[in-house]
Design a binder for these strands. Structure first.
Lengths: 240, 240
DNA sequence: CAGTGGTCTAGACCACCTT
DNA sequence: AGGTGGTCTAGACCACTGC
Protein backbone atom coordinates (compact mmCIF):
# COMPACT_ATOMS: atom_id res chain seq x y z
CA UNK A 1 0.00 0.00 0.00
CA UNK A 2 1.16 3.52 -0.77
CA UNK A 3 1.46 5.76 2.22
CA UNK A 4 0.27 9.31 2.18
CA UNK A 5 3.81 10.69 2.17
CA UNK A 6 4.76 8.43 -0.73
CA UNK A 7 1.88 9.81 -2.73
CA UNK A 8 2.82 13.38 -1.85
CA UNK A 9 6.46 12.72 -2.80
CA UNK A 10 5.36 11.31 -6.13
CA UNK A 11 3.05 14.21 -6.76
CA UNK A 12 5.80 16.73 -5.99
CA UNK A 13 8.23 14.74 -8.14
CA UNK A 14 5.92 14.87 -11.11
CA UNK A 15 5.23 18.58 -10.56
CA UNK A 16 8.98 19.19 -10.52
CA UNK A 17 9.46 17.13 -13.67
CA UNK A 18 6.72 19.00 -15.45
CA UNK A 19 8.24 22.29 -14.38
CA UNK A 20 5.25 23.33 -12.31
CA UNK A 21 7.93 23.91 -9.72
CA UNK A 22 11.01 25.23 -11.52
CA UNK A 23 14.60 24.37 -10.69
CA UNK A 24 16.26 27.03 -8.59
CA UNK A 25 13.03 28.19 -6.98
CA UNK A 26 11.63 27.31 -3.58
CA UNK A 27 8.85 24.88 -2.90
CA UNK A 28 5.97 26.14 -0.76
CA UNK A 29 6.86 25.99 2.92
CA UNK A 30 6.18 22.85 4.90
CA UNK A 31 3.24 24.54 6.57
CA UNK A 32 1.74 25.56 3.23
CA UNK A 33 2.23 22.08 1.81
CA UNK A 34 0.51 20.70 4.88
CA UNK A 35 -2.50 22.86 4.14
CA UNK A 36 -2.40 22.03 0.43
CA UNK A 37 -2.39 18.28 1.02
CA UNK A 38 -4.51 18.52 4.17
CA UNK A 39 -1.99 16.74 6.31
CA UNK A 40 0.33 17.35 9.21
CA UNK A 41 3.75 18.89 8.91
CA UNK A 42 5.60 15.71 9.91
CA UNK A 43 4.00 13.86 7.03
CA UNK A 44 5.07 16.57 4.62
CA UNK A 45 8.55 16.33 6.07
CA UNK A 46 8.71 12.62 5.30
CA UNK A 47 7.79 13.31 1.71
CA UNK A 48 10.39 16.08 1.41
CA UNK A 49 12.96 13.81 3.06
CA UNK A 50 12.57 11.33 0.22
CA UNK A 51 13.09 14.00 -2.39
CA UNK A 52 16.13 15.33 -0.54
CA UNK A 53 17.58 11.85 -0.34
CA UNK A 54 17.32 11.48 -4.08
CA UNK A 55 18.95 14.80 -4.72
CA UNK A 56 15.90 16.55 -6.10
CA UNK A 57 15.70 19.25 -3.48
CA UNK A 58 17.92 20.82 -0.86
CA UNK A 59 16.42 21.98 2.40
CA UNK A 60 17.87 25.16 3.84
CA UNK A 61 17.07 26.07 7.40
CA UNK A 62 15.32 29.36 7.81
CA UNK A 63 14.73 29.68 4.08
CA UNK A 64 12.95 26.76 2.51
CA UNK A 65 13.35 23.82 0.16
CA UNK A 66 15.03 24.69 -3.11
CA UNK A 67 14.68 22.60 -6.24
CA UNK A 68 18.00 21.31 -7.56
CA UNK A 69 18.96 20.96 -11.16
CA UNK A 70 21.18 17.94 -11.38
CA UNK A 71 18.65 15.49 -12.71
CA UNK A 72 19.67 16.34 -16.23
CA UNK A 73 22.37 13.79 -15.86
CA UNK A 74 21.23 11.90 -12.84
CA UNK A 75 19.77 8.69 -14.10
CA UNK A 76 20.55 7.04 -10.80
CA UNK A 77 22.50 3.94 -11.76
CA UNK A 78 23.41 3.62 -8.17
CA UNK A 79 20.76 1.79 -6.22
CA UNK A 80 19.20 -1.48 -7.21
CA UNK A 81 17.63 -1.41 -10.59
CA UNK A 82 17.15 -4.12 -13.13
CA UNK A 83 18.58 -3.80 -16.62
CA UNK A 84 15.06 -3.53 -17.99
CA UNK A 85 14.09 -0.70 -15.62
CA UNK A 86 17.35 1.05 -16.41
CA UNK A 87 17.03 0.99 -20.18
CA UNK A 88 13.37 1.90 -20.05
CA UNK A 89 14.00 5.05 -18.05
CA UNK A 90 16.58 6.08 -20.55
CA UNK A 91 14.51 4.98 -23.51
CA UNK A 92 17.23 2.84 -25.03
CA UNK A 93 16.87 0.05 -27.55
CA UNK A 94 17.99 -2.94 -25.56
CA UNK A 95 18.13 -6.67 -26.01
CA UNK A 96 18.95 -9.61 -23.79
CA UNK A 97 20.39 -12.91 -25.01
CA UNK A 98 20.19 -15.82 -22.61
CA UNK A 99 23.42 -17.75 -23.14
CA UNK A 100 23.00 -20.37 -20.46
CA UNK A 101 20.47 -21.45 -17.87
CA UNK A 102 21.27 -24.47 -15.72
CA UNK A 103 20.91 -25.77 -12.20
CA UNK A 104 24.07 -25.88 -10.16
CA UNK A 105 25.50 -25.05 -6.75
CA UNK A 106 26.25 -21.48 -5.68
CA UNK A 107 29.88 -20.51 -5.07
CA UNK A 108 31.16 -20.66 -1.52
CA UNK A 109 33.28 -17.52 -1.82
CA UNK A 110 32.16 -14.14 -3.00
CA UNK A 111 33.41 -10.60 -2.38
CA UNK A 112 35.80 -12.00 0.17
CA UNK A 113 32.99 -13.60 2.14
CA UNK A 114 32.52 -17.28 2.86
CA UNK A 115 29.03 -18.46 2.06
CA UNK A 116 27.31 -21.81 2.34
CA UNK A 117 27.07 -23.38 -1.07
CA UNK A 118 23.50 -24.27 -1.98
CA UNK A 119 21.35 -25.23 -4.96
CA UNK A 120 20.85 -22.41 -7.41
CA UNK A 121 19.76 -21.50 -10.89
CA UNK A 122 22.71 -20.21 -12.87
CA UNK A 123 21.89 -17.72 -15.56
CA UNK A 124 24.21 -16.14 -18.08
CA UNK A 125 22.93 -13.25 -20.11
CA UNK A 126 24.45 -10.89 -22.63
CA UNK A 127 23.02 -7.39 -22.68
CA UNK A 128 23.02 -5.28 -25.83
CA UNK A 129 22.21 -1.64 -26.25
CA UNK A 130 21.67 -0.42 -29.79
CA UNK A 131 22.85 -3.84 -30.95
CA UNK A 132 26.21 -3.45 -29.23
CA UNK A 133 27.09 -5.93 -26.44
CA UNK A 134 27.79 -3.98 -23.27
CA UNK A 135 27.26 -6.24 -20.25
CA UNK A 136 27.64 -9.90 -19.46
CA UNK A 137 25.54 -10.83 -16.43
CA UNK A 138 26.20 -14.03 -14.52
CA UNK A 139 23.55 -14.71 -11.87
CA UNK A 140 23.12 -17.30 -9.20
CA UNK A 141 19.52 -17.37 -7.98
CA UNK A 142 19.37 -19.38 -4.81
CA UNK A 143 16.70 -22.00 -4.23
CA UNK A 144 15.11 -21.49 -1.91
CA UNK A 145 13.74 -18.87 -2.21
CA UNK A 146 13.77 -19.02 -6.02
CA UNK A 147 12.67 -22.60 -6.63
CA UNK A 148 11.43 -22.45 -10.19
CA UNK A 149 12.72 -20.17 -12.91
CA UNK A 150 10.81 -20.13 -16.18
CA UNK A 151 12.84 -19.51 -19.28
CA UNK A 152 10.91 -16.35 -20.06
CA UNK A 153 11.90 -14.73 -16.75
CA UNK A 154 15.50 -14.34 -17.82
CA UNK A 155 14.57 -13.05 -21.24
CA UNK A 156 12.21 -10.45 -19.91
CA UNK A 157 12.68 -9.00 -16.47
CA UNK A 158 14.02 -11.15 -13.70
CA UNK A 159 13.03 -8.68 -11.00
CA UNK A 160 9.54 -8.35 -12.38
CA UNK A 161 9.20 -12.13 -12.10
CA UNK A 162 10.58 -12.21 -8.57
CA UNK A 163 8.55 -9.32 -7.26
CA UNK A 164 5.30 -9.84 -9.10
CA UNK A 165 5.04 -13.56 -9.84
CA UNK A 166 6.71 -14.83 -6.70
CA UNK A 167 5.54 -11.97 -4.50
CA UNK A 168 8.96 -11.45 -2.91
CA UNK A 169 10.24 -8.06 -1.82
CA UNK A 170 13.75 -7.10 -2.88
CA UNK A 171 15.28 -4.91 -0.22
CA UNK A 172 19.00 -4.19 -0.32
CA UNK A 173 22.32 -5.09 -1.88
CA UNK A 174 26.01 -4.80 -1.25
CA UNK A 175 28.22 -4.26 -4.26
CA UNK A 176 31.89 -4.20 -5.05
CA UNK A 177 33.12 -2.53 -8.23
CA UNK A 178 36.60 -3.31 -9.57
CA UNK A 179 38.51 -3.22 -12.82
CA UNK A 180 39.95 -6.58 -13.80
CA UNK A 181 41.59 -8.51 -16.57
CA UNK A 182 39.06 -10.98 -17.94
CA UNK A 183 39.39 -14.26 -19.88
CA UNK A 184 39.75 -14.00 -23.62
CA UNK A 185 36.48 -15.86 -24.22
CA UNK A 186 34.59 -13.30 -22.18
CA UNK A 187 36.37 -10.43 -23.87
CA UNK A 188 35.33 -11.79 -27.26
CA UNK A 189 31.69 -11.95 -26.19
CA UNK A 190 31.81 -8.27 -25.33
CA UNK A 191 33.58 -7.43 -28.55
CA UNK A 192 36.80 -6.41 -26.86
CA UNK A 193 40.10 -6.75 -28.65
CA UNK A 194 43.45 -7.47 -27.14
CA UNK A 195 42.61 -5.23 -24.22
CA UNK A 196 41.08 -7.38 -21.65
CA UNK A 197 40.34 -4.91 -18.93
CA UNK A 198 36.69 -4.74 -17.88
CA UNK A 199 34.62 -3.29 -15.09
CA UNK A 200 33.34 -6.03 -12.81
CA UNK A 201 30.47 -5.45 -10.41
CA UNK A 202 29.81 -8.18 -7.87
CA UNK A 203 26.54 -7.89 -5.96
CA UNK A 204 24.82 -9.73 -3.17
CA UNK A 205 21.12 -9.02 -3.17
CA UNK A 206 18.80 -9.63 -0.24
CA UNK A 207 15.08 -9.82 0.46
CA UNK A 208 13.14 -7.88 3.07
CA UNK A 209 13.57 -10.66 5.64
CA UNK A 210 17.36 -10.52 5.10
CA UNK A 211 17.43 -13.74 3.04
CA UNK A 212 20.20 -13.71 0.44
CA UNK A 213 18.69 -14.70 -2.90
CA UNK A 214 21.01 -13.49 -5.64
CA UNK A 215 24.71 -13.35 -6.42
CA UNK A 216 25.62 -11.47 -9.56
CA UNK A 217 28.81 -10.90 -11.46
CA UNK A 218 28.29 -8.17 -13.98
CA UNK A 219 31.03 -7.61 -16.54
CA UNK A 220 30.90 -4.28 -18.34
CA UNK A 221 32.66 -3.10 -21.47
CA UNK A 222 34.91 -0.37 -20.09
CA UNK A 223 34.26 2.06 -22.92
CA UNK A 224 30.51 1.79 -22.36
CA UNK A 225 30.60 1.89 -18.60
CA UNK A 226 29.18 4.92 -16.88
CA UNK A 227 28.16 5.09 -13.28
CA UNK A 228 26.25 8.12 -12.10
CA UNK A 229 25.82 8.78 -8.43
CA UNK A 230 24.35 11.30 -6.06
CA UNK A 231 25.80 11.37 -2.58
CA UNK A 232 25.19 13.30 0.60
CA UNK A 233 27.88 13.96 3.13
CA UNK A 234 27.24 11.89 6.22
CA UNK A 235 27.93 13.26 9.63
CA UNK A 236 27.89 9.92 11.43
CA UNK A 237 31.37 9.56 12.76
CA UNK A 238 32.48 6.01 12.07
CA UNK A 239 35.19 6.18 14.68
CA UNK A 240 37.21 3.21 15.76
CA UNK B 1 24.84 20.58 17.42
CA UNK B 2 24.13 16.90 17.86
CA UNK B 3 20.48 15.99 18.04
CA UNK B 4 19.18 13.40 20.44
CA UNK B 5 18.57 10.88 17.67
CA UNK B 6 22.09 11.39 16.31
CA UNK B 7 23.50 10.59 19.72
CA UNK B 8 21.30 7.51 20.03
CA UNK B 9 22.32 6.35 16.54
CA UNK B 10 25.99 6.76 17.45
CA UNK B 11 25.51 4.92 20.71
CA UNK B 12 23.77 2.02 18.99
CA UNK B 13 26.45 2.01 16.28
CA UNK B 14 29.22 1.70 18.82
CA UNK B 15 27.32 -1.00 20.72
CA UNK B 16 26.94 -2.93 17.47
CA UNK B 17 30.61 -2.50 16.66
CA UNK B 18 31.62 -3.70 20.08
CA UNK B 19 29.36 -6.69 19.73
CA UNK B 20 27.13 -5.68 22.61
CA UNK B 21 24.44 -6.27 20.04
CA UNK B 22 25.50 -9.19 17.89
CA UNK B 23 24.98 -9.52 14.15
CA UNK B 24 22.00 -11.66 13.31
CA UNK B 25 20.13 -10.85 16.51
CA UNK B 26 17.37 -8.33 17.08
CA UNK B 27 17.75 -4.96 18.71
CA UNK B 28 15.36 -4.17 21.58
CA UNK B 29 12.01 -3.05 20.25
CA UNK B 30 11.37 0.60 19.50
CA UNK B 31 9.25 0.87 22.63
CA UNK B 32 11.99 -0.62 24.80
CA UNK B 33 14.62 1.64 23.27
CA UNK B 34 12.34 4.58 23.96
CA UNK B 35 12.30 3.62 27.64
CA UNK B 36 16.05 2.94 27.70
CA UNK B 37 16.90 6.33 26.26
CA UNK B 38 13.97 8.10 27.92
CA UNK B 39 12.62 9.44 24.68
CA UNK B 40 9.64 9.08 22.41
CA UNK B 41 9.24 6.35 19.84
CA UNK B 42 9.47 8.72 16.87
CA UNK B 43 12.88 9.87 18.04
CA UNK B 44 14.05 6.27 18.32
CA UNK B 45 12.70 5.67 14.83
CA UNK B 46 14.82 8.51 13.44
CA UNK B 47 17.91 6.95 14.97
CA UNK B 48 17.06 3.52 13.59
CA UNK B 49 16.31 5.07 10.22
CA UNK B 50 19.90 6.31 10.02
CA UNK B 51 21.28 2.88 10.81
CA UNK B 52 18.99 1.27 8.26
CA UNK B 53 20.09 3.77 5.63
CA UNK B 54 23.69 2.83 6.18
CA UNK B 55 22.97 -0.86 5.96
CA UNK B 56 23.66 -1.69 9.58
CA UNK B 57 20.21 -2.97 10.42
CA UNK B 58 17.14 -4.20 8.60
CA UNK B 59 13.71 -3.45 10.02
CA UNK B 60 11.14 -6.18 9.63
CA UNK B 61 7.53 -5.36 10.27
CA UNK B 62 5.96 -7.37 13.04
CA UNK B 63 9.29 -8.75 14.16
CA UNK B 64 11.91 -6.17 14.96
CA UNK B 65 15.18 -4.64 13.78
CA UNK B 66 17.83 -7.21 12.95
CA UNK B 67 21.53 -6.42 12.90
CA UNK B 68 23.15 -7.07 9.53
CA UNK B 69 26.60 -8.40 8.98
CA UNK B 70 27.88 -6.73 5.85
CA UNK B 71 30.12 -4.20 7.49
CA UNK B 72 33.01 -6.61 7.31
CA UNK B 73 33.66 -5.30 3.88
CA UNK B 74 31.59 -2.16 3.82
CA UNK B 75 33.96 0.72 4.18
CA UNK B 76 31.50 2.98 2.44
CA UNK B 77 33.53 4.51 -0.34
CA UNK B 78 30.32 5.72 -1.77
CA UNK B 79 29.27 8.99 -0.20
CA UNK B 80 31.46 12.02 0.17
CA UNK B 81 34.59 11.38 2.10
CA UNK B 82 37.97 12.95 1.89
CA UNK B 83 41.05 10.91 1.11
CA UNK B 84 42.29 11.49 4.63
CA UNK B 85 39.07 10.32 6.25
CA UNK B 86 39.06 7.28 3.98
CA UNK B 87 42.57 6.12 4.71
CA UNK B 88 42.19 6.80 8.41
CA UNK B 89 39.14 4.59 8.72
CA UNK B 90 40.99 1.82 7.03
CA UNK B 91 44.19 2.47 8.91
CA UNK B 92 46.35 2.74 5.82
CA UNK B 93 49.73 4.39 5.47
CA UNK B 94 49.00 7.22 3.10
CA UNK B 95 50.82 10.18 1.69
CA UNK B 96 49.86 13.18 -0.41
CA UNK B 97 52.20 15.00 -2.77
CA UNK B 98 51.10 18.42 -3.96
CA UNK B 99 52.22 18.65 -7.58
CA UNK B 100 50.75 21.98 -8.48
CA UNK B 101 48.81 24.79 -6.86
CA UNK B 102 47.94 27.82 -8.95
CA UNK B 103 45.18 30.35 -9.52
CA UNK B 104 43.26 29.96 -12.74
CA UNK B 105 39.76 29.92 -14.19
CA UNK B 106 37.42 26.97 -13.72
CA UNK B 107 36.40 24.98 -16.79
CA UNK B 108 33.14 25.88 -18.47
CA UNK B 109 32.20 22.30 -19.28
CA UNK B 110 32.03 19.41 -16.86
CA UNK B 111 30.12 16.14 -16.84
CA UNK B 112 28.23 17.33 -19.86
CA UNK B 113 27.07 20.46 -18.09
CA UNK B 114 27.78 24.02 -19.08
CA UNK B 115 29.05 26.09 -16.18
CA UNK B 116 30.08 29.69 -15.84
CA UNK B 117 33.83 29.92 -15.74
CA UNK B 118 35.09 31.70 -12.64
CA UNK B 119 38.27 32.28 -10.63
CA UNK B 120 39.50 29.19 -8.85
CA UNK B 121 42.40 27.59 -7.07
CA UNK B 122 43.68 24.67 -9.10
CA UNK B 123 45.25 21.90 -7.10
CA UNK B 124 46.93 18.76 -8.37
CA UNK B 125 47.76 16.06 -5.87
CA UNK B 126 49.18 12.59 -6.10
CA UNK B 127 47.92 10.11 -3.52
CA UNK B 128 50.03 7.20 -2.36
CA UNK B 129 49.08 4.24 -0.23
CA UNK B 130 51.92 2.14 1.12
CA UNK B 131 54.24 4.22 -1.04
CA UNK B 132 52.43 3.22 -4.23
CA UNK B 133 50.75 5.99 -6.27
CA UNK B 134 47.06 5.17 -6.61
CA UNK B 135 45.15 8.37 -7.32
CA UNK B 136 45.79 11.64 -9.10
CA UNK B 137 43.38 14.32 -7.89
CA UNK B 138 42.82 17.49 -9.88
CA UNK B 139 40.67 20.00 -8.02
CA UNK B 140 39.18 23.34 -8.88
CA UNK B 141 38.15 25.19 -5.73
CA UNK B 142 35.96 28.09 -6.72
CA UNK B 143 36.48 31.52 -5.28
CA UNK B 144 34.15 32.52 -3.90
CA UNK B 145 33.51 30.73 -1.64
CA UNK B 146 37.10 29.48 -1.26
CA UNK B 147 39.02 32.75 -1.45
CA UNK B 148 42.28 31.81 0.19
CA UNK B 149 43.92 28.41 0.15
CA UNK B 150 46.97 27.94 2.34
CA UNK B 151 49.57 25.55 1.07
CA UNK B 152 49.14 23.32 4.08
CA UNK B 153 45.45 22.73 3.36
CA UNK B 154 46.21 20.65 0.29
CA UNK B 155 48.91 18.71 2.05
CA UNK B 156 46.76 17.86 5.01
CA UNK B 157 43.03 17.62 4.68
CA UNK B 158 41.25 19.92 2.31
CA UNK B 159 37.83 19.13 3.77
CA UNK B 160 39.06 19.71 7.30
CA UNK B 161 40.22 23.17 6.21
CA UNK B 162 36.95 23.97 4.46
CA UNK B 163 34.68 22.74 7.22
CA UNK B 164 36.66 23.77 10.26
CA UNK B 165 38.75 26.77 9.25
CA UNK B 166 36.30 28.35 6.85
CA UNK B 167 33.20 27.12 8.68
CA UNK B 168 31.47 25.97 5.52
CA UNK B 169 29.15 22.96 5.43
CA UNK B 170 29.69 20.43 2.66
CA UNK B 171 26.39 18.94 1.69
CA UNK B 172 26.13 16.87 -1.48
CA UNK B 173 27.83 15.82 -4.68
CA UNK B 174 27.05 14.39 -8.06
CA UNK B 175 29.58 12.03 -9.54
CA UNK B 176 30.23 10.30 -12.81
CA UNK B 177 32.51 7.29 -12.93
CA UNK B 178 33.97 6.13 -16.24
CA UNK B 179 36.91 4.18 -17.59
CA UNK B 180 39.05 6.16 -20.00
CA UNK B 181 42.30 6.22 -21.88
CA UNK B 182 44.56 8.77 -20.24
CA UNK B 183 47.59 10.76 -21.48
CA UNK B 184 50.95 9.06 -21.25
CA UNK B 185 52.28 11.65 -18.80
CA UNK B 186 49.47 10.93 -16.41
CA UNK B 187 49.91 7.19 -16.81
CA UNK B 188 53.59 7.55 -15.90
CA UNK B 189 52.72 9.44 -12.73
CA UNK B 190 50.53 6.57 -11.62
CA UNK B 191 53.15 4.02 -12.56
CA UNK B 192 51.12 2.54 -15.36
CA UNK B 193 52.85 0.95 -18.31
CA UNK B 194 51.67 0.83 -21.88
CA UNK B 195 48.14 0.29 -20.68
CA UNK B 196 46.60 3.64 -20.35
CA UNK B 197 43.16 2.77 -19.11
CA UNK B 198 42.22 4.36 -15.80
CA UNK B 199 39.11 4.90 -13.72
CA UNK B 200 38.05 8.53 -13.81
CA UNK B 201 35.68 9.99 -11.25
CA UNK B 202 34.38 13.47 -11.96
CA UNK B 203 32.57 15.15 -9.07
CA UNK B 204 30.71 18.36 -8.50
CA UNK B 205 30.53 19.16 -4.81
CA UNK B 206 28.09 21.62 -3.25
CA UNK B 207 27.60 23.44 0.03
CA UNK B 208 24.49 23.47 2.18
CA UNK B 209 23.19 26.58 0.48
CA UNK B 210 23.53 24.84 -2.91
CA UNK B 211 26.65 26.81 -3.88
CA UNK B 212 28.97 24.83 -6.11
CA UNK B 213 32.46 25.04 -4.64
CA UNK B 214 34.50 22.16 -6.02
CA UNK B 215 35.09 20.34 -9.29
CA UNK B 216 37.26 17.29 -9.05
CA UNK B 217 38.76 14.91 -11.57
CA UNK B 218 40.05 11.88 -9.77
CA UNK B 219 42.16 9.44 -11.77
CA UNK B 220 42.55 6.00 -10.23
CA UNK B 221 44.96 3.20 -11.04
CA UNK B 222 42.60 0.50 -12.29
CA UNK B 223 44.28 -2.33 -10.44
CA UNK B 224 43.96 -0.44 -7.16
CA UNK B 225 40.44 0.78 -7.69
CA UNK B 226 37.73 -0.68 -5.51
CA UNK B 227 34.36 0.85 -4.96
CA UNK B 228 32.14 -0.62 -2.26
CA UNK B 229 28.52 0.30 -2.08
CA UNK B 230 25.41 -0.44 -0.10
CA UNK B 231 22.13 0.20 -1.86
CA UNK B 232 18.46 -0.05 -1.01
CA UNK B 233 15.80 -0.71 -3.58
CA UNK B 234 13.74 2.41 -4.10
CA UNK B 235 10.04 2.21 -4.66
CA UNK B 236 9.67 5.69 -6.05
CA UNK B 237 8.46 5.17 -9.57
CA UNK B 238 10.39 7.55 -11.80
CA UNK B 239 7.80 7.33 -14.54
CA UNK B 240 7.88 9.43 -17.66
C1' DC C 1 9.77 40.63 14.18
C1' DA C 2 7.53 36.82 11.41
C1' DG C 3 8.58 32.90 8.63
C1' DT C 4 11.30 28.97 7.81
C1' DG C 5 13.07 24.28 8.70
C1' DG C 6 14.98 20.97 12.80
C1' DT C 7 13.72 18.47 16.75
C1' DC C 8 10.77 16.29 20.05
C1' DT C 9 6.55 14.62 22.30
C1' DA C 10 2.45 11.58 23.62
C1' DG C 11 -0.77 9.60 21.76
C1' DA C 12 -3.51 7.04 18.07
C1' DC C 13 -4.66 3.50 14.56
C1' DC C 14 -3.05 0.08 11.37
C1' DA C 15 -0.73 -4.21 9.33
C1' DC C 16 2.00 -7.82 10.29
C1' DC C 17 4.09 -11.77 12.95
C1' DT C 18 4.02 -14.97 16.70
C1' DT C 19 1.88 -17.86 20.10
C1' DA D 1 -4.27 -11.61 21.85
C1' DG D 2 -0.12 -9.27 22.44
C1' DG D 3 4.04 -7.58 20.47
C1' DT D 4 6.29 -5.54 16.61
C1' DG D 5 7.17 -1.87 13.18
C1' DG D 6 4.56 1.75 9.74
C1' DT D 7 1.89 5.77 9.53
C1' DC D 8 -0.23 9.95 11.07
C1' DT D 9 -1.58 13.76 14.11
C1' DA D 10 -1.52 18.37 16.65
C1' DG D 11 1.03 20.58 19.12
C1' DA D 12 5.47 22.48 21.16
C1' DC D 13 10.08 24.72 21.38
C1' DC D 14 14.35 25.87 19.08
C1' DA D 15 17.80 27.97 15.59
C1' DC D 16 18.26 30.32 11.67
C1' DT D 17 16.96 33.75 7.94
C1' DG D 18 15.10 37.87 6.30
C1' DC D 19 13.25 42.30 6.67
Amino acid sequence: MQSKYDLIAQDLLSKIKHQQYAAGTFLPSEKQLGDLYSTSRETIRKALGQLEQQGLIQKIRGKGSIILDLQRLTFPISGIESFKELTQHQKLVSETQVLKQIKTMSPSHFNGLTLTSQPAHYLERLRLINQVPVILDCDYLLSPPITTLPKTAGENSLYEYIEQELGLTISYASKVVTVERIPEVTAKLLGLGSEQLAVVVRSLVYLEDTTLFQLTISIHRPDQFKFVDFARRTKVTQEA
